[in-house]
Design a protein around this nucleic acid. Structure first.
Lengths: 147, 147
DNA sequence: ATCGCTGCAAAATCTTTGCAAGTTA
DNA sequence: TAACTTGCAAAGATTTTGCAGCGAT
């Protein structure tokens, strides 16, 4: 079942709400909080819409990102997309170098940095912070192996 | 003229110091502080070594990055490489959305964030912060146009 | 003389684009 | 109907790989 707000947002835009776009939106909503690649979106969207093509997926994801419905960023050498979540605005990613798990960090220390830069004449619009770490589970596993 | 330290570092490693590797190192040293793509490195390296191939460039850049001589990161949808600078360790990138200029930020606010994560059981090894902004020059140009 | 390294070409990925046909408002 | 959208296939772009021959130690 698709979030009416998002469907409406598209109807109100210059874009048309097609069954393919609806299917892709549903996939993104159903996977809230996950960072899906175009390939993953394609596979999941095909459950609902078996004939959908990759070009449509890329085109739709880019439209949704330009409408601030999705956030597009680069992980693992490819673009990944996640549903924007208005409640948790400033979140950063912490990527486990061992298992690849992606956790999120809510801390908002970057405002201080951004204010500093604004004083120097920059106008900061966005940022992207990735932390590379071993996650608690992998740290534990490494300790167990060492025993 | 190539930094003897770096040439020596390769000689001391399991890798051989070939004329191609030397040429690539020289390019990176001559462009200290810049973020070069493989293609750009290839073009510059060919001034010195006209027959060098792209595969060699990629292979060498990856070796140098694995030795912590270069830092590899993704900008503008491709990998870019820059010489590691021991004096300015924690630096972040601020990318102008208008002219594409890349400035660097030395502020080191991330330690606080990393300590917080360490307490939660992560072991943080590296981070990558990109800020997207309009640079002071482009801000000024926009103001001038508006007049 | 080894064993590593190189250049070339081909392959592998990921992403974008052209176009004829189908669909939406 | 008019304009937008789709799927397919082809093209683009970046990066990696296989291999025969070359080169460093």
């Amino acid at each position: 079942m698709l979030d009416d707000n998002l469907a409406q947002k598209i109807k109100d835009s210059k874009y048309r709400l097609t069954s393919q776009r609806e299917a892709i939106l549903e996939v993104m909503v159903a996977n809230r909080g996950k960072h899906l690649s175009a390939e993953e979106v394609l596979q999941k969207a095909r459950d609902e819409h078996p004939l959908i093509g990759m070009a449509t997926v890329y085109r739709t994801l880019d439209i949704l990102a330009s409408m601030d419905i999705l956030h597009k960023s680069m992980f693992d050498d490819k673009f990944r997309y996640e549903l924007c979540d208005n409640d948790r605005h400033q979140h950063h990613h912490i990527i486990c170098l061992s298992c690849g798990a992606i956790a999120e960090v809510q801390e908002d220390l970057l405002h201080i940095l951004e204010e500093h830069l604004e004083k120097k004449g920059f106008r900061v619009l966005d940022h992207d912070l990735k932390l590379y770490a071993y996650c608690p589970e992998c740290c534990q596993r490494q300790k167990n192996l060492a025993r």
